[in-house]
C-alpha cells in the first residue's frame, strides 16, 4: 500500500479505496473512498442506516471488510494489531463500563492499557468530569456517561479518535457542551473521525464532511464547499398589493402574499427584488435572506440518491 507508511506525520491518517461490506445479499457499504489528513476533524454524515457505523467499525478494526483497501495510521485495521490499538481511541455508539467503579478508577483502568497515556487529571479536565472523579459510574447522568466514553477514548493519548454518534439522544444544551468539548480536542492536534446524522453537528465541528447515503459517498468536502456546490440562498418576503413580476422568479409560499425566491446569485436577485419594490412603492415585509445550509445540501443529495438507488 503506497502513501501510508508508519510514522511519517505528513501521511494521511486514513486512506480508503473502494471499501465494500456486504451482509449476505445486502451491501451496507458500496465502494467508498476516503482520505483524512492528520489533525483534521472529519465527519461522516448520513441518515440512519446509511452505513456510517459499519464504515467506522471497519476503520476501527471491529468489523472485517468484504473488499477494498484500508490504511489507518499506516496499519490495516483488519489485522487487529496491538500496536495499532495503542494509537487509536474508540468511542462506540453504545458501550457501558463497570457501573461499580468510580469515574477516576475507570480512567485509571483504561490508562493502564496504553504505553504512554494522558495524565488522569488532563483527561478529566478535557471532558469536564473533574468534579465527578469520585462518583460511581452508575450514578452518572446520560450526558456524563457519554463524556466518560470520550474520556476513555482519550485515555491512551491516541493520534486518532473515532466518535460514533457522540451526541445522539442529547438535549440541545448537553449537545452544545459536547460540541465545545470535541472542538477543544482540535487544539491537541488529534485527528478525529465522527459520524453523525445531525447536520448542525457536522457543520459546527468538522473541517470536512463526507455525506454517506445508502452505503455510498454522494458528496465530500469542507462545509463551505458542499454548501457552495449544491445549494441555494432563499429569500422570503411578503408584499401587499401587486404580484412580483415573472423575472424575479418568486414563487408563492403559503397564503397572504408570501413569496420565496431560490437562487444561486443572491446579490443580483436581491437587487432586482428591492429595485422592483422601490419602483412600485411597496414595502417588503418579513424580508429574510437565508444562507444555504448543509441541511439543504444534505436533503437534496439524500433525496436524489434515494430516488436513484431505491428499489
Amino acid at each position: 500500500m503506497d502513501g501510508a507508511q508508519v510514522g511519517g506525520r505528513a501521511d494521511p491518517a486514513i486512506v480508503v479505496r473502494g471499501l465494500r461490506k456486504s451482509y449476505g445479499d445486502v451491501e451496507a457499504v458500496r465502494g467508498i473512498d476516503l482520505n483524512v489528513p492528520r489533525g483534521e476533524i472529519f465527519a461522516i454524515l448520513g441518515p440512519n442506516g446509511a452505513g456510517k457505523t459499519t464504515t467506522v467499525e471497519i476503520l476501527e478494526g471491529h468489523l472485517a471488510r468484504s473488499g477494498g483497501e484500508v490504511s489507518v495510521l499506516g496499519f490495516d485495521p483488519g489485522n487487529h494489531e496491538r500496536s495499532f490499538r495503542e494509537r487509536i481511541g474508540i468511542v462506540l455508539q453504545s458501550a457501558s463500563v463497570d457501573p461499580y467503579l468510580s469515574v477516576g478508577e475507570t480512567i485509571e483502568l483504561f490508562r493502564g492499557y496504553y504505553p504512554d497515556p494522558l495524565p488522569r487529571e488532563t483527561v478529566l479536565e478535557l471532558v469536564g468530569l473533574s468534579a465527578q472523579r469520585g462518583t460511581l459510574v452508575r450514578r452518572l447522568s446520560g450526558g456524563q456517561q457519554r463524556r466518560l466514553d470520550v474520556a476513555i477514548g482519550l485515555a491512551g493519548d491516541p493520534e486518532l479518535l473515532f466518535l460514533d454518534e457522540p451526541t445522539t439522544g442529547f438535549d440541545p444544551s448537553a449537545r452544545r457542551g459536547a460540541w465545545e468539548m470535541i472542538r477543544g480536542l482540535r487544539s491537541l492536534g488529534k485527528t478525529v473521525v465522527l459520524t453523525t446524522h445531525y447536520m448542525e453537528e457536522a457543520e459546527y465541528l468538522a473541517d470536512r464532511v463526507a455525506i454517506l447515503v445508502k452505503g455510498a459517498i454522494v458528496a465530500e468536502g469542507s462545509v463551505e464547499e458542499l454548501v457552495r456546490r449544491g445549494a441555494h440562498t432563499t429569500i422570503h418576503f411578503r408584499v401587499e398589493g401587486p404580484s412580483p413580476p415573472g423575472h424575479l422568479a418568486a414563487e408563492p409560499a403559503g397564503d397572504g402574499g408570501a413569496y420565496v425566491i431560490t437562487t444561486v446569485e443572491a446579490t443580483a436577485a436581491l437587487h432586482r427584488l428591492t429595485g422592483w419594490a422601490l419602483e412600485e412603492g411597496v414595502e417588503l415585509q418579513e424580508l429574510t435572506v437565508a444562507a444555504p445550509s448543509l441541511e439543504d445540501v444534505f436533503l437534496s443529495l439524500a433525496g436524489s440518491s434515494g430516488r436513484n438507488g431505491g428499489p
Binding site: 476501527e60 471491529h62 496491538r82 487509536i88 462506540l92 453504545s94 458501550a95 463500563v97 483504561f110 492499557y113
Partner: peptide, 14 residues
C-alpha cells in the same frame, strides 16, 4: 450485552 467486551477489544488489552 453492555458492550463492555467490545469496548475493551478496541484497546491494547489482550
Amino acid at each position: 450485552e453492555q458492550g463492555l467486551l467490545k469496548r475493551t477489544r478496541g484497546t491494547p488489552l489482550p
